[in-house]
């Protein structure tokens, strides 16, 4: 089931990737070629197999509830594209 141009546009929106018109056909072809490769999985019998998310299947270690961080706003905001009064700025959000 090959992806159509509109599918690709939908995925690109989901991933917030601005693609230009000229690239769309190439990207659609490339994605279909990759999906063709991964679709080979469908032939594998995986009945009754538990999915494996982590190779070692260890369990989560827990951290003590302690405050270990101090204010480093100045350093962290020095690399930010736009800030004002300690806030990160983005184009106006309408709710």
């Amino acid at each position: 089931m090959a992806l159509q141009r509109c599918d690709v546009e939908k995925i690109a929106h989901l991933a917030r990737l601005g693609l230009n018109e000229a690239e769309l056909p190439h990207i659609t072809d490339a994605l279909n070629s990759i999906l063709g490769l991964v679709d080979q999985m469908q032939a594998v019998d995986t009945d009754g197999i538990e999915p494996l998310a982590h190779p070692l299947e260890a369990s989560q270690r827990l951290r003590a509830d302690q405050v270990t961080e101090r204010n480093q706003r100045e350093a962290y905001q020095a690399i930010a594209p736009a800030t004002e009064n300690g806030l990160y700025l983005v184009p106006k959000v309408i709710e």
């Binding site: 004002e84 990160y88 700025l89």
Partner: peptide
């Protein structure tokens, strides 16, 4: 903020 939204994390 001059037409922007401020983010506090």
């Amino acid at each position: 903020f001059n037409g922007a939204t401020g983010i506090d994390l």
